[in-house]
Amino acid sequence: MLSEIMMIPMIAALMLLLAIIVGLFFLGLDRKIAARFQSRIGPPIVQPFRDLVKLLAKETIVPDNAIGWLFNLAPVIALASALLLILYLPFLGVAPILSGYGDLILVLYLLMLPALAIAIGGFASGNNYATVGAQRKLIMMLSYEFPLAVLVMAVVWKTSSMFPDLQGFTFSTFMQHPVLTLVGPVGGFGVVLLIVTILIALCAELIKGPFDNPEADTELAGGVLVDYSGRNLALFLLSDAVKLCAFITLVIGLLLPCSLGDMFSSFMYTGWLAIAANVVFFFVKFTVIAILGLTFVRVAFARLKINQATKFFWLVSAGISLLGLLLISLDSMM
């Protein structure tokens, strides 16, 4: 009995550790592949681990005009909320550990929390650059939340209208009935549009590529993180890695939850082998999304101005997601 109680926290802890390692690894892979795109050799894939160790060894400075406790608290909140997010998501393609204690709505709010923590940290550091960066981060958040909400609504509406007796807002439902298998060709196009929307939001959420205005190294000198150093910066790096993991898992969990495990089980492979196949397939999807959605976009497009980015999200991204919703609803009418 005791071992069963201990089992879940231990699995959770292992999962979080794995999320951190996978996240850092993919940050390294991102840098390496971006370098190859620019015909450079690039840093080794373990570079983020080295950066992390180095940052932990550095002095941690709290500026005089910063609000000390808030300045130190912000990175902790960012990391903690990102880690919590992992527990609510179907990381590794298995059902989320805290699946009974909250649903997709909670996940949407938790997604906001790391971004909010970064903005709070920026405001608390009392630096002009950080303040501008934090304002940009908040504006960006207001912009990309709407397409994301439309997307979640579309998926949930489709699933729950087909299976009214299942819980609509949980990942296990999506995993049982992937949205792509529920729709026809028209709706399938709609789902592809939704995938495009969420991939655009991916860059903004991770402050990368064309939407890295809040951190803009060349104009804002590091933006929200301008006054962070040492341990605090290391925590932000970690939360960055976990956020990458979480958001890509969200993409997979919402729109591409198809698993190899079911296919394997029909071939009489069950148990551990099916789980292993699932995990491998999860990482294949993960890699493809990370490279196509993050690295490729980051290298191919220059940074937008903040007003352009906002306009882009409210017009183009929201338009694409609404069109996807429309196509899916058309599909169910046909």
């Binding site: 450079r40 050799i41 690039g42 840093p43 080794p44 550095k58 804002l220 590091g222 301008v226």
Partner: peptide
């Protein structure tokens, strides 16, 4: 930049002295 690519050795340009070594 790409020709000499100091990032091979982990050398990265940062925008603020707070991040710098």
């Amino acid at each position: 930049t790409p020709r000499y690519d100091a990032e091979r050795f982990g050398i990265k340009l940062v925008g603020t002295p707070r991040h710098a070594d």
